[in-house]
Amino acid sequence: MSALLPFYALSVVILFLKMLGISCYQGYHRISRLTFQNAEDARFVGRQASPEELPQVTRAARAWANDLENIPLFFVLGGLCVVLDTATSTSLALFCVFTAARIAHTLCYLLQWQPWRTLAYAIALACLLGMAGMVVSRALAVL
């Protein structure tokens, strides 16, 4: 077993929990205000459907969409790092920094903190590029 696998697995679970947290954040705001756009959800709590989504829910949905553009790339590139047994210390650092940067990105997105959100995004992107470079380097070395 690759020494990277446990760290990769922990990163995946932490990122899953982070994304679950965004869903809970949306649910909290909808339920606490009993405001739902879907008619069946509104009827369930005895309300009319809201013509507009709550701003907090909309913002969280944009953070979620950004995750869907970035986190699957980590799953693939990180998994390839594990399979190709890339440099352990560098890979571990990239896994940890990527995970922390994506958490920071979400918090900055929800709290409307700029330029910190962009910085967190850029750090996570740099980690993905680093992983991609390691995957290419290792793949070429074993050819």
Rank of each mutant, 00 (worst) to 15 (best):
E40K: 15
D41Y: 09
A42H: 04
A42M: 07
A42I: 05
R43F: 13
R43G: 08
R43A: 15
F44N: 11
F44Y: 11
F44M: 14
F44E: 12
V45L: 09
V45F: 15
V45M: 08
V45P: 07
G46S: 06
R47S: 00
R47P: 01
R47I: 02
R47D: 02
R47V: 02
R47T: 05
Q48E: 15
Q48D: 14
Q48V: 04
A49W: 03
S50M: 08
P51F: 04
P51Q: 05
P51C: 05
E52I: 06
E52F: 12
E52A: 13
E52H: 13
E52G: 01
E53L: 10
E53M: 11
L54P: 00
P55T: 07
Q56L: 11
Q56M: 10
T58P: 00
T58G: 12
T58Q: 14
T58V: 11
R59D: 09
R59F: 04
R59A: 09
R59N: 10
A60G: 02
A60V: 01
A61D: 07
A61H: 06
R62K: 15
R62A: 11
A63M: 09
A63T: 06
W64F: 15
W64T: 10
W64S: 12
A65F: 09
A65E: 13
A65G: 14
N66A: 11
N66G: 08
N66L: 09
D67T: 02
D67I: 02
D67L: 00
D67A: 03
D67E: 08
D67C: 07
L68F: 12
E69Q: 13
E69A: 11
N70R: 08
N70G: 13
I71Y: 00
P72T: 03
P72Q: 10
P72G: 06
F74Y: 04
F74Q: 03
F74W: 02
F75R: 06
V76G: 08
L77R: 01
G78H: 03
G78I: 04
L80E: 07
C81A: 15
C81F: 05
V83A: 12
V83T: 06
L84W: 03
D85N: 13
T86Y: 00
T86F: 00
A87V: 01
A87W: 02
A87I: 00
T88I: 06
T88E: 14
T88R: 07
T88A: 11
S89K: 10
S89H: 11
S91Q: 06
S91G: 12
L92W: 08
L92G: 02
A93T: 12
L94S: 07
L94W: 05
L94A: 10
F95G: 08
F95N: 07
V97K: 06
F98S: 01
F98M: 04
T99S: 11
T99E: 07
A100I: 12
